[in-house]
Every structure is written in C-alpha cells, then in structure tokens.
Design a protein around this nucleic acid. Structure first.
Lengths: 194, 194
DNA sequence: CGGAAAAATTAGACGGTGTTCAATAAAATA
DNA sequence: TATTTTATTGAACACCGTCTAATTTTTCCG
C-alpha cells in the first residue's frame, strides 16, 4: 500500500500521532481505535504496532502530544498576561480542558499497568508544565516563602485539577452549581497568601 | 441454566451488582467485562442486558454501589472521630480510594454519553456524600460564614479529589514526591480559616 | 388440573476490538 | 546484480458489547 519512500520513520510517527490525536478529539478515549487510525492514514494495523510497539505506546505518544499542546497554550496565555498571572494560568488550564475535552480526558482515562512508568519523554512533558507553573507560584510568593514553591505548586496543581475534573464531569452541576474557575482561584489565592 | 425461581428479580440484580463490583475491583474498568460477570453468576450475557438494559446501566449500578460503600466508610470514620473531624474526613476519602482503587477509579473513568445524566438513585448517592461533608464543613465554619458551607464544600471536595487523583495516578511521584493527605488538609484548613 | 398468556432466559450472529506473526514487498548494501 | 536488511501487510485469534429470535419457565385462569 504505502511505500517506504513515502515517509521516513520519523515522519510516519508524526503522521500517526497527529491523525491519532484528531481521532481522539473526535471520539474520546473510550471509542478510540488503533485500527481506525491505521485506516485513516492508509497503512495497515500492523504498521502501527511496528512503530509504537503496542496500543499503550500509541496512546502514550498521543497523550504526550496533548501535554505539549497544553503547555504551549499555557505559555502563550502567560506571555499575554501582565498582572494576575496565577489567574491567567488557571484560566488557561480550564480553557484547554474545555477546548480539547476528549484529548484532555484521555490523559487521565488511560492508565499504564501498575508496574510500568511512562517513558522519559512523556515524564519530561509533565515536568515541563510543572516547571512553568512553579515559576509563577514562586514569583507570587513572598521572599520568605520562596522555598515552598515546588511543594506548594504540586498541591495547587492538584487543587486546580480537581476543580477542572468536577467541572468537566458535571459533578459541580449535580451538586448545585458553582463557578469552578473562581473557586479554584480562591483556593490558590488563600494558599499563596498563607 | 439458572432457574427463575432461584432468585427474585431484585435478588438477581443484587447478585449481579455484587459480583460485578468484585470483578471491577479485581481487573479495573479497562478490563471489566459484562460477559465475565454473566459467566461468574452462571447466567448468560443476555440476562445482564435484560436486567440493566445496557453495559452503561450495569456500570452505573456498580459505581452507585461503590459510592454507597464510600459514604459508609466516611460516616464510620466520622463517627469514630472526636476533634479533627475534617482531617478524619479527608483521611477517609484517601483510605477508600486506596483500598478500592479500581472501583474508585471506575467512578471517574466511566463517562455517560454527553446528553444523558445518571439516574436519580445515582445522583442521590453523590448528594448523600456531599451532604455528609457539608455538615462537617458547616460545623467547622465560624457563625458568620455558615452560609458559605455548601459552596465551600463543593470547592473543598474538588480540592481533596484533585490531591487524591494525583496520588493515585502517580503524578505526585513524577513531580518529586509529596504527602497528598497533608497537602489537601492544609488547603482545607486555609479555606475554612478564611 | 391443563392449557394459554406472560415473563425470563438463552445462545448464536454481528461487527467491532487489540494483538500476533509468517509471508511478502521494498530498499539498502555489497 | 544478488543478497541482506528493513518495512509492511493482512489473515488468524480470542475477546468485546449488542441485539434478537427461539426457547424455557412461571404465572394465571377457566
């Protein structure tokens, strides 16, 4: 079908990830299909497995791409923000989740076997987002508390994430409404104020 | 195979949920199989569909049971706690998630089609947990802020949930460790202190 | 009691899925 | 050009959720 000369290995990898991400955004993790991705790019299912090793490998590559796009969105929003940078970061968090709900949810819906960890590239993407936020939290902290920045950021990311999850899965709606962004921001402000 | 007289409809429902929950706890949402549940109770797959209507209906029934057990655990822990009741509630939240990781995760891994909501019984389970926590938050709040209890509880549940998610999916570990219970408790104390 | 109506249960068919792997085709090398 | 290496295929396998016609079991009524 497709010829080797059509794409280098790296190009093929790229095409599969891009097509897979598009498919993920359309149907969501539960209905995602590696076969469907193969069909869309005009290769056979076997090729997907040759390139990514397994279904899990493919999903991890797609989720890694989502993380990169998420960080990109965050960085752009921060670049455009002057004051209220923490508010801008939180808003960016929610924005991305809402605009890419399926791809975003896939990051958390997918679970590696308990005894295996994501590859280094994936972990680096996670840490890159973390580092971006740490810088903002540190900047917002008074001098005497700068050393708390990393630990506090872990907790605040979890806080914002929790609000985002409950917003996306309609838990807030079920519990009588709420403004998730506003609430998350309130928690973050309290923590930074100390 | 199995005879109608063996079980009433309600008993059969109960047996399927109990067996399904056990299966869920063993293999997790991703490897859960309605066929396997049918095999275990000695009925055919068709019977599962007659009783629950669909795969989604079965999962919702199982998740609803998990919610009931979760609330039960929470209530027991609160009954045994004197002071530090919010700390006890948070600990109970994490405890249940860790002891029943697969069943707990299934609550969030499963997503209903975007245009449908869980049935009233399921929603009632969610609200029952919420109400239990609201009472504790209200008790911890000074008189002048009692009216904030519901809104604040929504936000604090999200906060604790976020910490629990990051603990369970190893995000905290990837980001350089943390004590999730301690961190969640710190955020809750700050919010209650105002 | 017996037969008809109702309810419960079955199991096979259908179109999917992830996964594997021997066979094949293409490219690189010598 | 002949050989080796690499890439690609697609059928086979064992599952999955879903549907439904046929069957069994129970209930009900005369």
């Amino acid at each position: 079908m497709a010829r080797r000369s059509d794409h280098s290995r790296a190009e093929l990898r790229e095409i599969i990830i891009a097509t897979g991400l598009r498919h993920m955004e359309e149907v969501g993790f539960a209905h995602f299909s590696a076969r469907e991705v193969a069909k869309r790019i005009g290769y056979s299912i076997g090729t997907i497995y040759n390139v990514f090793g397994s279904y899990d490998g493919l999903i991890l590559a797609i989720n890694g791409r989502t993380l990169a796009l998420w960080r990109d969105h965050l960085v752009r929003r921060l670049a455009a923000a002057s004051d209220e940078r923490l508010a801008a970061a939180i808003t960016a968090y929610f924005e991305f989740a809402m605009r890419h709900r399926h791809a975003w949810a896939a990051i958390y819906d997918f679970r590696l076997p308990e005894d295996t960890a994501p590859d280094e590239a994936y972990q680096a993407e996670v840490r890159a987002i973390f580092d971006t936020v740490v810088a903002e939290v540190r900047a917002a902290l008074p001098l005497s508390r700068k050393d708390e920045a990393e630990g506090l950021t872990r907790s605040l990311l979890a806080t914002v994430h929790g609000h985002c999850v409950f917003a996306m899965n309609r838990t807030f709606a079920m519990l009588g409404g709420a403004d998730p962004v506003e609430a998350a921001l309130a928690r973050v402000r309290e923590a930074v104020a100390g």
